[in-house]
Design a protein around this nucleic acid. Sequence first.
DNA 1: TATTGTTATACTCTATAACTATA
DNA 2: TATAGTTATAGAGTATAACAATA
Lengths: 157, 157
Amino acid sequence: MRDMDNGAGPVRQDALRSLLGYNFKRSYMRIHRDIRATLAGFDLTQRTFSVLSVVAETPGISQSEISRALEIERSGTVVIVDGLEGRGLIQRDKVPGDRRAYALTVTSAGSDLHARALAALRACEDRIFGTFTPQERAHLRALLDLIQNEEQPDETQ
Amino acid sequence: MRDMDNGAGPVRQDALRSLLGYNFKRSYMRIHRDIRATLAGFDLTQRTFSVLSVVAETPGISQSEISRALEIERSGTVVIVDGLEGRGLIQRDKVPGDRRAYALTVTSAGSDLHARALAALRACEDRIFGTFTPQERAHLRALLDLIQNEEQPDETQ
DNA sequence: TATTGTTATACTCTATAACTATA
DNA sequence: TATAGTTATAGAGTATAACAATA
């Protein structure tokens, strides 16, 4: 009787369900819940993992470059890098040519944690998308890429 | 030279990009930005629009039913309903059989705003997915449904 | 002038807990 | 005991603004 507690009848949400945006949100919440739980086991969040990952793959990257690549505010990147450095996962080194910036690299501990968290995330996705065929996974990825590469509305006028 | 500011070379994010979850997040952020801007024109958020929409389509629905249908905490629903009621978009009526609950319905102003916001959202989605073929839209919707209907990990043991 | 890194602040969103009235 | 609604609070996540040092 869950949908008929007060006699209003089943809960209709035809309008919401007709919107791709709403279904996208619900799907994302479903995925995000599992990803968050997986990363919590490594004391990481989506953001801290993303920063760790980019540093691991781009040794010498600066904080500003991270901000641009991941679309995080610079002020937010500082806090994340502080945390990762404090845990001995990455380190800040001086940049010879530019005394403003740091060159970030992962420590061996950071590299190790990144590898283990990445493996856990792949396992997590295998669970979430376990019923998907390889073709369905590829198609989903292709559609997500299409969305990300959409023209942005021109805000310069 | 945006990706080579410090000589670290182009920013690599192969690991992140190999994860469906990360691409999902980026796509969702892209879509959400436009949806939020669209709804802001009606002084609505995704949540307040969702509640308004469900009330419009299920006259007499209770707050608890909204919470279950939209997966919002009851305490959050109260605040949203307060706001919509304060703006004259929905109203709370007594339920004959249950003195605890309210029967919610939209006012004519609420019905009108819902219709206009819904039309704006459809137009917004037409812009976002303008380059998608009808088949691609349908396929995306089908894949999103698959994700939402995934078995949840059993937490009752 | 623009950019890098930083700090402090504020705001939004959401979850949690505790409570009352009623079933 | 369980449910409907409510209130207050706290936390996470994120954005904004201002600043010093350097380019």
